[in-house]
Design a protein around this nucleic acid. Structure first.
Length: 289
DNA sequence: GTAATTTGACCGTC
DNA sequence: GACGGTCAAATTAC
């Protein structure tokens, strides 16, 4: 099971292996908590208890995120062995390679900013991935800005950036890709969600990740909650095609029912009644079954 | 009318 | 040259 992307730093052989194993387990736990929350929260009534439950979920995810960050920090820089990729997330092995520097320096060593396309290959060590049947239920507001077919994959990859990118210069992005083998025996659709960067925005949901939050912390709020509204718009996923508005309220009713004040810690969509898009509902039911 | 998504093109990296 | 990430005009949804 591929869960966590590791940065290119490494530690002594055995230690690195231990770290990877630990990180894998933590990521797995995060994924499970995420999925559990996706099931529990929408089913809860809008009262103080649901808020408490939401807080508790968030705390759990924050803890694991911090643990993940700690493990990250204890890894030292050196290349990974090729077959380590087996337990690394990413379908795209090229990403494992060193990502180019963000800044370009001229002869005087002065950093020159590129006006556009500064970073075609993302920093691999600045990402966290999850496998989840509910890739959009993460409580953050994302805007889709691209979709691409990726080589050797059945389904195209969707690219999202934080809705508040412009207003608040939030650099967080994520990619969502349905796994090729996601329709296994139990027919559960699984998606690989990779989060890049951290939310610097003060998200409306109040779960904001402060600038000093670890990247994984951001991710915890990101990968942990996913919006119930669907943005699964892969052409290949016709059965999944539903709302095009990621993280928008499920419907007007739910938007009216759940006030912002009531659900400060999370995006209101995270508490929307079970009015899920069919594919999400299917995923939740299957997972919950 | 506004906002979000789609999609082809562009660009950087490998 | 292939590939992946992003841009931005066109399209669609609300």
């Amino acid at each position: 099971m591929k869960h966590q992307q590791y940065n290119s730093r490494c530690v002594p052989q055995s230690s690195a292996s231990d770290h990877r194993s630990a990180m894998k387990e933590i990521a797995r736990g995060q994924s499970l908590v995420t999925q559990l929350r996706a099931i529990v929260l929408p089913a809860l009534q809008a009262d103080e208890r649901s808020e408490l439950v939401a807080h508790m979920f968030q705390n759990i995810l924050d803890c694991s995120s911090k643990a993940m960050a700690e493990l990250h920090m204890h890894q030292s820089p050196c290349p990974r062995r090729p077959h380590d990729d087996d337990d690394v997330l990413v379908d795209d092995k090229k990403r494992v390679k060193k990502i180019s520097s963000v800044d370009c320096k001229n002869e005087e060593g002065v950093t020159t900013a590129k006006p556009r396309h500064q970073q075609k290959r993302r920093r691999f060590d600045d990402s966290v991935s999850l496998e989840t049947p509910v890739p959009h239920y993460d409580g953050r507001q994302w805007r889709k800005y691209g979709q691409k077919h990726i080589n050797n994959t059945k389904h195209s990859r969707s690219y999202y950036r934080c809705t508040y990118r412009q207003e608040q210069d939030c650099k967080a992005t994520k990619t969502v890709q349905q796994q090729d083998d996601s329709s296994g025996a139990d027919h559960t659709l699984m998606y690989t969600v990779v989060y890049y960067g951290q939310h610097t925005c003060k998200d409306n949901d109040g779960v904001n990740s402060s600038p000093d939050d670890s990247e994984t912390n951001t991710r915890s709020s990101s990968d942990s909650q996913s919006s119930i509204s669907s943005t699964c718009t892969d052409p290949c996923d016709n059965q999944n095609q539903t709302s095009l508005h990621d993280n928008k309220p499920i419907d007007d009713k739910s938007e009216k029912l759940v006030t912002k004040d009531m659900y400060e810690p999370f995006d209101t969509t995270a508490f929307a009644p079970l009015d899920l898009d069919s594919w999400e509902l299917d995923a939740l039911l299957r997972f919950g079954a």
